[in-house]
Design a protein around this nucleic acid. Sequence first.
DNA 1: ATTGGTTCCTGCTGGC
DNA 2: TGCCAGCAGGAACCAA
Length: 278
Amino acid sequence: MPELPEVETVARGLSLRMEGKRLKTLDLHRPDLRRPMPTGLKALVEGRVILGIARRAKYVLMHLSDGGTLIVHLGMSGRMLLSDPGVPPTALEKHDHVVFTLEDGTVVRFNDARRFGLLDYAAPGQLADHRVFEGLGPEPLGNEFSGPVLAEALAGKSTPLKAALLDQRVVAGIGNIYACESLYYAGLSPRRIAATVTAARAEKLAQAIRDVLTKAIAAGGSSLRDYVQTSGELGYFQHQWAVYGKEGEPCPGCDCDKAIQRIVQSGRSTFYCAKRQR
DNA sequence: ATTGGTTCCTGCTGGC
DNA sequence: TGCCAGCAGGAACCAA
């Protein structure tokens, strides 16, 4: 499920094939995804050159030559499917909701079965003020994120720590999987009340978040190279998770015989080791 | 204001 | 073998 590392991988992969090229057509095959498509979008972006592709939180940003920006959110099941270089694009498949055609013939399909995804647009100069970035917390891999910053964001919060990490206002880009994994490596219980995380623990958690995300991006990046060479398609990858999805399995990081537990918090599965995580 | 619960959607899985 | 309930989840939304 696309969280920060997966979105980063997708953005990098798209950069390789889309940057510096002109967007010939943008075809919308339905009027909405999670929200209605922006009005007049086609006319706003067609003919622009894609200057660069970046990521903020879980959003892919396509910077256009007139200063406008296309904003893509993959939701839960969203994928960006690239045509093979020098090969005529294949026919559209089910759930190909948005199709980008570049001047050199490259076709990129935004396929999203569950339609939790999003396509939006920021006019020139309006990106920073766009609604999707309102209240968004710091980038966990950026300089503005640190133990003290995290501690401050958690202070006064009476929610479980796991729920706080999923709150994009606390820190941007973390989803269910990396919240579980980060808490595991920090040795902190997902059930702990967020406000009880003081300086030392926040420092450890911030570091765990950075480590987990960095490693996941590295894994995605290496998979990406292979994947692009063989099929030209971007997808998601096999991950080595410590606790996520490992209910009943032994805790990998300590000698305890306690199996990894699954509990439900805020309606979502949390996986953790009750002995290692306090 | 904060927080917890619900909803959107479809594909896959497990149980009978 | 086939059916169907249950589950997966990001973020907007609503209600307390």
